[in-house]
Design a binder for these strands. Structure first.
Length: 321
DNA sequence: CATGACGCCTGTCAGC
DNA sequence: TGCTGACAGGCGTCAT
């Protein structure tokens, strides 16, 4: 049911958040920091106290993203506030003066009290039910390929710890041919490669299934057995699906409210595969099925996405029969 | 280096 | 009613 269901943020959702932050908190100075849950800053090396100390007084000067990683550059050169939303993270911007009596969100983990350049107070809350997400203040390093790019900043720097993440499919500096080669050098199933954030980033379980459905490729097709045009078609499908979701989900940010859960792109545009077990395939009418792959659900059309012939020896697998 | 399994977390829901 | 286990699942870590 909508409202309580989980909507895991993938690239379009994170980009929508980044865009909202760019429009609502840039130029703000951090007046105060409250860490309500230490675990939510576990990636910050110096611990919660140091996390707050490093942020106090800093000005947020840019909002950038690569894949599902999001960061706010600080006016302290070479430092950034890194955020990953994990499975349930939200960044909520509000005006604390608008409704002083409003109760805090149940899953509030970190609060930043901000002051805008004109002196107006503003609040940035990190809310995260399942706490797979995190915030951290980290240094920035040059991108491995030396090229600018990414979304929201044309700077050639990324936070330390994000350098290993590949450019995403919406990044104009992405070398698609190189990604095709890298994917085809793998022996794993194509879905595993799609989810590998070091090859190309931003694709999660939901958009992976949608891309494979669209490209009519089974999730367990071996990467090194796919022809280059097939790999390219899968990547193109992933880009298309995410672009469409972004177009739909990105329209809900006129309010002073940055929300990854409220009007998520993939729910607004509708899904063709993910979560549709038992329902007819929109293309051929066959029943969509759910299977377990990599310990997570995979939804596919068994007719449009035929299973590859036998793969390697099923040594440790449960030979479900 | 490539590959794949595991655990971290909280909340919901089906089944007993 | 209350307990238990399955499920959701990104990603860092570890073993092979």
């Amino acid at each position: 049911m909508p409202g309580s269901g989980t909507r895991v943020p993938e690239l379009p959702e994170v980009e929508t958040v980044r865009d909202g932050l760019a429009r609502h908190v840039l130029g703000a100075r951090v007046a105060d920091v409250t860490v309500l849950r230490d675990y939510s800053v576990r990636r910050h090396e110096g611990g919660p106290v140091d996390f707050a100390a490093r942020l106090r007084g800093a000005v947020l000067v840019a909002a950038a993203r690569r894949g599902k990683y999001l960061w706010l550059e600080l006016d302290h050169p070479g430092e950034a506030l890194l955020a990953h939303l994990g499975m349930s993270g939200q960044l909520l911007v509000s005006d604390p003066a608008a409704d002083p009596g409003a109760p805090d969100h149940r899953h509030l983990r970190v609060r930043l009290d901000l002051v805008m350049p004109d002196g107006a107070p503003r609040r940035l809350d990190f809310v995260d039910q399942r706490t797979f997400g995190y915030l951290a203040v980290v240094g920035t390093v040059p991108t491995p390929d030396g090229a600018p790019g990414g979304s929201g900043s044309l700077r050639a720097e990324v936070p330390d710890g994000v350098a290993h993440v590949g450019r995403d499919l919406l990044d104009p500096a992405l070398d698609v041919d190189a990604v095709v080669r890298a994917v085809r050098s793998r022996r794993s199933g194509i879905k595993r490669a799609l989810l590998d954030q070091t090859l190309t980033s931003g694709v999660g379980n939901i958009y992976a299934d949608e891309a494979l459905w669209r490209a009519q490729v089974h999730y367990d097709r071996r990467c090194d057995a796919l022809r280059p045009p097939q790999v390219r078609a899968v990547l193109d499908a992933a880009r298309t699906v995410m672009t469409e979701a972004l177009a739909v989900g990105g329209t809900s940010f006129d309010a002073l409210y940055v929300n990854v859960n409220g009007e998520s792109g993939y729910f607004a545009r509708g899904l063709n595969a993910y979560g549709r077990a038992g329902q007819p395939c929109a293309r051929c009418g066959a029943e969509i099925v759910r299977e377990v792959f990599m310990n997570r659900s995979s939804y596919l059309c068994p007719v449009c996405q035929p299973r590859p012939r036998a793969r390697r020896s099923p040594r440790a697998g449960t030979a479900a029969g």
